[in-house]
């Protein structure tokens, strides 16, 4: 019991540190790819600390409600993951974060945030379906949705789920808000919708959402590590490789339209996953 409580406290803290660090690596690496020096690794933390100390300002009270709910859901999902819970429950809880992000963004009359909310819904649709398919694959290989069963597998899941891993990479790109799928709120400033769903979140609220975003990325990378859960170095290397690949892609790709994302990107990913699932069954 005590152990669980300690884990429930330690996991979100560790994940915040890790997520912020990853974000720092991302910014520095991107700067290097653009032949700039880039900010220090601690930059994301400084940004968030500054944001938390800024003035609160809302156009609709839901903008104050949503970030807390979003962050809470993200942290809770991670704790569940660390406790080796039911992957479906983890995904359901994780989904709540996205729901509230959109609700808060839609609560503002700003046309930028409204338009981006619609796009965010499409992005959620494409990510969530793929994650649930991964849960299905987990069930078909281990006979259970519990993550604790995974360690008993003799060989890495990746051998049996190569197509699903490709689909997961697509979901990771969408979730990390990286080109070519950064439609609803780019990680860099300046895009056609200002900052998309984040446009109307001010100061501390933006800070909370930024932390929630870090936690989401950590959860995705943790899910990525499930693909090679048989050896500890691979569990670290595989997500890291995926993360670096996403950043490289971000720097070489232009933004695509939502039609392309939903039609080709998600359509292909879904078909690949379905194929993979069907041969698992056989």
């Amino acid at each position: 019991m005590m152990q669980t409580a300690a884990l429930a406290l330690a996991v979100p803290c560790a994940a915040i540190l890790l997520g912020g660090l990853l974000s720092g690596i991302d910014r520095r690496l991107t700067a290097r790819l653009q032949s700039r020096q880039g900010p220090p690794l601690s930059q994301p933390f400084l940004d968030v600390i500054k944001l938390m100390a800024k003035e609160r300002m809302v156009t609709n009270p839901w903008q104050a409600f949503s970030p807390v709910a979003s962050l809470g859901a993200a942290a809770f999902a991670l704790v569940f993951f660390a406790l080796q819970g039911d992957l479906l429950v983890i995904l359901f809880v994780h989904m709540v974060g996205g729901v509230f992000l959109v609700l808060g963004a839609m609560a503002s009359p700003s046309p930028y945030s409204q338009t981006a909310s619609q796009r965010e819904l499409w992005q959620m649709l494409s990510c969530e379906t793929l994650l649930f398919l991964i849960a299905g694959a987990l069930y078909l290989t281990t006979g259970s949705f519990r993550l604790s069963e995974l360690s008993a597998l003799p060989e890495p899941l990746l051998y049996r789920l190569p197509l699903l891993f490709a689909a997961f990479f697509f979901a990771l790109t969408v979730k990390m808000r990286k080109s070519p799928f950064d439609l609803a709120g780019c990680h860099h400033a300046h895009q056609e919708l200002v900052r998309g769903v984040f446009t109307e979140y001010v100061g501390p609220y933006l800070g909370l959402l930024e932390i929630a975003h870090w936690l989401d990325i950590v959860l995705y990378l943790a899910i990525c590590s499930l693909f090679w859960a048989t050896s500890t170095p691979a569990m670290i290397l595989l997500p890291l490789a995926a993360f670096l690949a996403v950043i490289m892609l971000d720097n070489v790709a232009a933004r695509l339209t939502w039609r392309w994302m939903l039609g080709w990107g998600w359509g292909a990913a879904f078909v690949l996953s379905a194929l993979n699932l069907s041969w698992l069954k056989g």
């Binding site: 700067a31 700039r36 880039g38 400084l46 400033a189 300046h190 200002v194 109307e200 001010v202």
Partner: peptide, 19 residues
């Protein structure tokens, strides 16, 4: 731009008064 690269100091051009 890369010549001056003010992002070294954490400067970001956000294009949004709210941020």
């Amino acid at each position: 731009t890369p010549v001056y690269d003010v992002e070294r100091f954490g400067v970001v051009n956000v294009g949004n008064p709210k941020h």
